[in-house]
Protein backbone atom coordinates (compact mmCIF):
# COMPACT_ATOMS: atom_id res chain seq x y z
CA UNK A 1 0.00 0.00 0.00
CA UNK A 2 2.09 2.91 -1.21
CA UNK A 3 1.35 6.31 -2.62
CA UNK A 4 -1.24 8.83 -1.54
CA UNK A 5 -4.78 7.60 -1.51
CA UNK A 6 -7.93 9.68 -1.13
CA UNK A 7 -8.42 8.02 2.22
CA UNK A 8 -5.07 9.31 3.48
CA UNK A 9 -5.79 12.85 2.37
CA UNK A 10 -9.19 12.90 4.03
CA UNK A 11 -7.84 11.29 7.18
CA UNK A 12 -5.06 13.84 7.40
CA UNK A 13 -7.48 16.70 6.76
CA UNK A 14 -10.05 15.67 9.36
CA UNK A 15 -7.31 14.65 11.79
CA UNK A 16 -5.76 18.10 11.47
CA UNK A 17 -9.19 19.67 11.94
CA UNK A 18 -9.82 17.61 15.07
CA UNK A 19 -6.47 18.61 16.55
CA UNK A 20 -6.84 22.26 15.57
CA UNK A 21 -10.30 22.57 17.10
CA UNK A 22 -8.97 20.73 20.16
CA UNK A 23 -6.30 23.41 20.55
CA UNK A 24 -8.86 26.17 20.03
CA UNK A 25 -10.81 24.80 23.01
CA UNK A 26 -8.06 25.95 25.37
CA UNK A 27 -7.01 29.08 23.51
CA UNK A 28 -10.27 30.96 23.12
CA UNK A 29 -11.55 33.16 25.93
CA UNK A 30 -15.23 32.73 25.12
CA UNK A 31 -16.66 29.73 26.93
CA UNK A 32 -19.40 29.04 24.42
CA UNK A 33 -16.86 29.10 21.64
CA UNK A 34 -14.70 26.74 23.62
CA UNK A 35 -17.54 24.22 24.05
CA UNK A 36 -18.51 24.42 20.39
CA UNK A 37 -14.86 24.09 19.33
CA UNK A 38 -14.79 20.84 21.28
CA UNK A 39 -17.98 19.85 19.46
CA UNK A 40 -16.40 20.46 16.08
CA UNK A 41 -13.29 18.58 17.17
CA UNK A 42 -15.49 15.60 18.07
CA UNK A 43 -17.42 15.95 14.81
CA UNK A 44 -14.12 15.82 12.93
CA UNK A 45 -13.34 12.63 14.85
CA UNK A 46 -16.71 11.27 13.70
CA UNK A 47 -15.85 12.21 10.12
CA UNK A 48 -12.53 10.36 10.53
CA UNK A 49 -14.57 7.29 11.50
CA UNK A 50 -16.62 7.73 8.34
CA UNK A 51 -13.42 7.95 6.30
CA UNK A 52 -12.26 4.75 7.95
CA UNK A 53 -15.53 3.14 6.80
CA UNK A 54 -16.91 2.67 10.30
CA UNK A 55 -20.23 4.16 9.24
CA UNK A 56 -22.35 3.29 12.24
CA UNK A 57 -19.78 4.49 14.76
CA UNK A 58 -19.11 7.69 12.83
CA UNK A 59 -22.76 8.66 12.61
CA UNK A 60 -23.25 7.74 16.25
CA UNK A 61 -20.28 9.86 17.32
CA UNK A 62 -21.51 12.84 15.30
CA UNK A 63 -24.99 12.54 16.80
CA UNK A 64 -23.97 11.99 20.41
CA UNK A 65 -21.41 14.74 20.54
CA UNK A 66 -23.79 17.40 19.20
CA UNK A 67 -25.93 16.79 22.26
CA UNK A 68 -23.16 16.37 24.78
CA UNK A 69 -21.27 19.47 23.80
CA UNK A 70 -24.38 21.66 23.68
CA UNK A 71 -25.09 20.60 27.25
CA UNK A 72 -21.44 21.38 28.00
CA UNK A 73 -21.96 24.87 26.59
CA UNK A 74 -24.84 25.67 28.92
CA UNK A 75 -22.88 24.43 31.91
CA UNK A 76 -20.02 26.69 30.91
CA UNK A 77 -22.38 29.64 30.77
CA UNK A 78 -23.87 28.71 34.13
CA UNK A 79 -20.63 28.25 36.04
CA UNK A 80 -18.31 30.84 34.54
CA UNK A 81 -17.99 34.40 35.69
CA UNK A 82 -17.33 35.62 32.18
CA UNK A 83 -18.86 33.22 29.65
CA UNK A 84 -18.58 35.63 26.75
CA UNK A 85 -14.86 36.09 27.27
CA UNK A 86 -15.10 39.89 27.18
CA UNK A 87 -12.85 40.32 30.20
CA UNK A 88 -10.06 38.18 28.73
CA UNK A 89 -9.17 36.71 32.11
CA UNK A 90 -6.55 34.04 32.49
CA UNK A 91 -7.96 30.70 33.56
CA UNK A 92 -4.89 28.53 33.64
CA UNK A 93 -2.49 27.40 36.30
CA UNK A 94 0.68 25.26 36.42
CA UNK A 95 1.17 26.03 32.76
CA UNK A 96 4.75 24.84 32.53
CA UNK A 97 3.98 21.48 34.14
CA UNK A 98 0.98 20.96 31.90
CA UNK A 99 2.89 21.83 28.76
CA UNK A 100 5.61 19.38 29.73
CA UNK A 101 3.09 16.67 30.55
CA UNK A 102 1.19 17.17 27.31
CA UNK A 103 4.40 17.34 25.32
CA UNK A 104 5.89 14.22 26.90
CA UNK A 105 2.62 12.36 26.37
CA UNK A 106 2.59 13.39 22.74
CA UNK A 107 6.23 12.48 22.10
CA UNK A 108 5.92 9.13 23.87
CA UNK A 109 2.79 8.24 21.93
CA UNK A 110 4.38 9.31 18.65
CA UNK A 111 7.51 7.28 19.39
CA UNK A 112 5.46 4.17 20.06
CA UNK A 113 3.37 4.74 16.95
CA UNK A 114 6.27 5.27 14.60
CA UNK A 115 8.65 2.68 16.07
CA UNK A 116 6.24 -0.20 16.51
CA UNK A 117 5.90 -2.87 13.84
CA UNK A 118 2.21 -2.95 13.10
CA UNK A 119 2.21 -5.92 10.79
CA UNK A 120 0.43 -6.13 7.46
CA UNK A 121 -2.75 -4.23 6.70
CA UNK A 122 -5.95 -6.17 6.19
CA UNK A 123 -7.54 -4.84 3.03
CA UNK A 124 -11.01 -6.40 3.13
CA UNK A 125 -13.53 -5.00 5.53
CA UNK A 126 -17.24 -5.86 5.80
CA UNK A 127 -19.81 -3.48 4.32
CA UNK A 128 -21.66 -0.94 6.43
CA UNK A 129 -24.86 -2.98 6.80
CA UNK A 130 -22.84 -6.10 7.58
CA UNK A 131 -20.86 -4.17 10.21
CA UNK A 132 -24.02 -2.98 11.93
CA UNK A 133 -25.41 -6.53 11.95
CA UNK A 134 -22.12 -7.96 13.26
CA UNK A 135 -21.98 -5.31 15.96
CA UNK A 136 -25.53 -6.14 17.02
CA UNK A 137 -24.73 -9.86 17.22
CA UNK A 138 -21.59 -9.06 19.21
CA UNK A 139 -23.50 -6.83 21.62
CA UNK A 140 -26.27 -9.34 22.22
CA UNK A 141 -23.98 -12.35 22.08
CA UNK A 142 -20.47 -12.64 23.40
CA UNK A 143 -20.28 -9.11 24.86
CA UNK A 144 -23.79 -8.97 26.26
CA UNK A 145 -22.64 -8.96 29.85
CA UNK A 146 -20.22 -6.07 29.27
CA UNK A 147 -22.87 -4.14 27.39
CA UNK A 148 -25.36 -4.67 30.18
CA UNK A 149 -22.84 -3.48 32.77
CA UNK A 150 -22.21 -0.37 30.69
CA UNK A 151 -25.95 0.32 30.66
CA UNK A 152 -26.16 -0.26 34.39
CA UNK A 153 -23.19 2.04 34.96
CA UNK A 154 -24.89 4.81 33.01
CA UNK A 155 -28.08 4.32 35.01
CA UNK A 156 -26.16 4.42 38.29
CA UNK A 157 -24.29 7.53 37.19
CA UNK A 158 -27.55 9.23 36.21
CA UNK A 159 -29.18 8.48 39.55
CA UNK A 160 -26.08 9.42 41.52
CA UNK A 161 -25.53 12.65 39.64
CA UNK A 162 -29.15 13.65 40.08
CA UNK A 163 -28.99 12.88 43.80
CA UNK A 164 -25.83 14.94 44.20
CA UNK A 165 -27.22 17.83 42.19
CA UNK A 166 -30.66 18.11 43.82
CA UNK A 167 -30.89 21.02 46.22
CA UNK A 168 -31.17 20.18 49.93
CA UNK A 169 -34.73 20.45 51.15
CA UNK A 170 -34.40 23.58 53.27
CA UNK A 171 -32.83 25.47 50.39
CA UNK A 172 -35.63 24.48 48.01
CA UNK A 173 -38.35 25.95 50.19
CA UNK A 174 -37.06 29.48 49.81
Amino acid sequence: MTGMTAQMIFLAFFGAAAVWFGIVVFRTKSMVRSALALLFSQTAVGLMFLVMQAEFLGVLQIMMMATEMSVMAIFMVMFMMDPGGMGAMDMTHQKRLSLWAGGIGLVAALAVIWLAAWGPAVPNIPGAAQQAADLGRELLGRSMFIFQSAGLTILTAMVAATMVAIAPRKERKE
Partner: peptide, 21 residues
Protein backbone atom coordinates in the same frame (compact mmCIF):
# COMPACT_ATOMS: atom_id res chain seq x y z
CA UNK B 1 -26.85 4.94 3.63
CA UNK B 2 -26.85 1.67 5.51
CA UNK B 3 -27.42 3.75 8.65
CA UNK B 4 -29.85 6.24 7.11
CA UNK B 5 -32.29 6.46 10.01
CA UNK B 6 -29.46 7.20 12.43
CA UNK B 7 -27.89 9.66 10.02
CA UNK B 8 -31.14 11.61 9.82
CA UNK B 9 -31.05 11.87 13.55
CA UNK B 10 -27.42 12.98 13.58
CA UNK B 11 -28.10 15.69 11.01
CA UNK B 12 -31.08 16.98 12.96
CA UNK B 13 -29.04 17.09 16.17
CA UNK B 14 -27.19 20.01 14.59
CA UNK B 15 -30.41 22.02 14.53
CA UNK B 16 -29.81 22.45 18.24
CA UNK B 17 -26.22 23.54 17.72
CA UNK B 18 -27.26 26.00 15.02
CA UNK B 19 -29.95 27.54 17.20
CA UNK B 20 -27.59 27.91 20.14
CA UNK B 21 -25.09 29.62 17.84
Amino acid sequence: LATGALFLNAALAYVLVALIM
